[in-house]
Amino acid sequence: MELRQAKTGKLMIEILPNKCDFCGCCVGVCPEDAIELKEAEIFIIDERCTNCSKCIWSCPIEVIVLNKNGLIKK
């Protein structure tokens, strides 16, 4: 099993699969340019994310969450 890790050693930010509308709010507020958004594909660039949570607060439809376990399976 492969695990993803953020800059901080832990990745706690998770974008719920198949729920994103690809609107770009989270990308616009991310201070680390840590979110990649294509036409209908989105993911967090783990090495850049600092878990600051700003993307969570700016998601209009609540599809980004903190994963308290800290590590997310790929």
Partner: peptide, 26 residues
């Protein structure tokens, strides 16, 4: 490139917006 504004960042401009100023809309 719209609200995401990533292209400017790649050129070294500070384009990300304060989360307080982003009106997240539906």
């Amino acid at each position: 490139d719209g609200v995401e504004s990533r292209v400017g960042r790649w050129a070294g401009l500070k384009t990300h917006i304060d989360f307080r100023d982003m009106e997240a809309a539906v």
